[in-house]
Design a protein around this nucleic acid. Sequence first.
DNA 1: TCATCGGGTATACAATCGTCTACCTGCACA
DNA 2: TGTGCAGGTAGACGATTGTATACCCGATGA
Lengths: 242, 242
Amino acid sequence: MAKTSDGRGNKDKPVERSTNGRQKLMEAALELAATTRSLASLGLREVARHAGLNPNTFYRHFKDFDDLGVAMLDELGTELRAGLREARMRPAKKGFRLSDFSNPAEGLAQAQALARESVGLVLDFVMDHREAYTVGIRELHGTSAVMRQAMQGLLDGIATDMTEDLLGVLMLPAVSHEELTAVARVIVRQMVFFSMDYLEQPSRHAEIKREAERFILLLFWGAIAARAPDLLSQANLKFPKV
Amino acid sequence: MAKTSDGRGNKDKPVERSTNGRQKLMEAALELAATTRSLASLGLREVARHAGLNPNTFYRHFKDFDDLGVAMLDELGTELRAGLREARMRPAKKGFRLSDFSNPAEGLAQAQALARESVGLVLDFVMDHREAYTVGIRELHGTSAVMRQAMQGLLDGIATDMTEDLLGVLMLPAVSHEELTAVARVIVRQMVFFSMDYLEQPSRHAEIKREAERFILLLFWGAIAARAPDLLSQANLKFPKV
DNA sequence: TCATCGGGTATACAATCGTCTACCTGCACA
DNA sequence: TGTGCAGGTAGACGATTGTATACCCGATGA
């Protein structure tokens, strides 16, 4: 996990001790980047100063700012991903299980509930980690190719998780695996924007949630209609109000 | 248009002369920002040097980097917007006109053609202005609140244009104006990502075009199915291959 | 017990930065 | 005719930057 460049004695002891300065630097960088500027354009001295450390201590732990960025993304990214998966499993444990669409009306109703829960989940997470989110998204289109790629990888990873979880819970009729993956990617990326709106416009929270939810449902509805248009009209299903 | 702060003699003469240095600075900033770093973190001297001018000349034209950024976005943004509108009008002149969905099959086929044309249009534009696009998107999530707001305004403006143009050409059944606006917003934002993919992965150009096109169609299909599910099944329409 | 080494510090240096003040030049207008 | 001003230049200022070299300490393992 860590790349502790032990010149000697690389036994199988991870040697996790004294991650004090390293952690301090990462936290300082996060705070500074969130309020001041992009990660890549942070000053080495600036970060060290804000962490209460000597400028040169930076070199002990990181060689680049890319290096620090990737480390941060590693830490927070896995946390986010784990949190999302775990939370997505929660409703399943509450007996929230919709196998096939043998009862389409009920199936879609529960799909809507699932969408609502997921949207709330993501937006809550973003609110709880707004600094990390702000900085991360900045790097998504930033100048560092390394960070850009890492962030895109994280988003795609989330989309993959989402696809797999969905497949275990929701058997969409006639929607193939690749199709579902594409839809998940699109949703994850769109949530980037919705999250931004959510952070920047606290007064519109409810409205933004509705918009996001509606967007997701529209996509799934389209996917179903594209593959099994009969399903919708036969059951005389109405698109939910949202 | 320009804010030539004439202390005296503000007759109705715009006085457009000698925009030489100003233009040079903007071009230099664009080039530097595209290759080096974010706009906001550019050096004043750096830009001036790259423009072959004295550092102090910067102050003659701009007071901030935000100031310069907004000026650039003004110039390129209106160009993009005009280009898109004009190009979207082109098919309409070719007799490409689908009023209502009295013939749903034909209507949707032409909607697909319209989607394809629009996607190609945007992606071509991005390829032709990759520097400006790269820098602009960087600022969309950047540190400068001024630039962020300006970029979001541009995107929303494009979405509005798109909605109006669509309303003149394509009467989607039972899809309200606000609904169409929401869909347009979502499409425009998603195109940001597709454009990024397009720039970064030249080998997947055709594939990305297909994905974008498919995404748009899926949305419209969903919107139609949500409001008029009968339309799709009655006419026994198949979702296009894409 | 003692050498090794990771983590942290101190100092120094050249480069670059933003900005201030001053000076130059050629139009425009009265 | 000549005055004012926008546009551009020159030089200097203190501050801050990244980095190189050298020193320090406490734990660890032989």
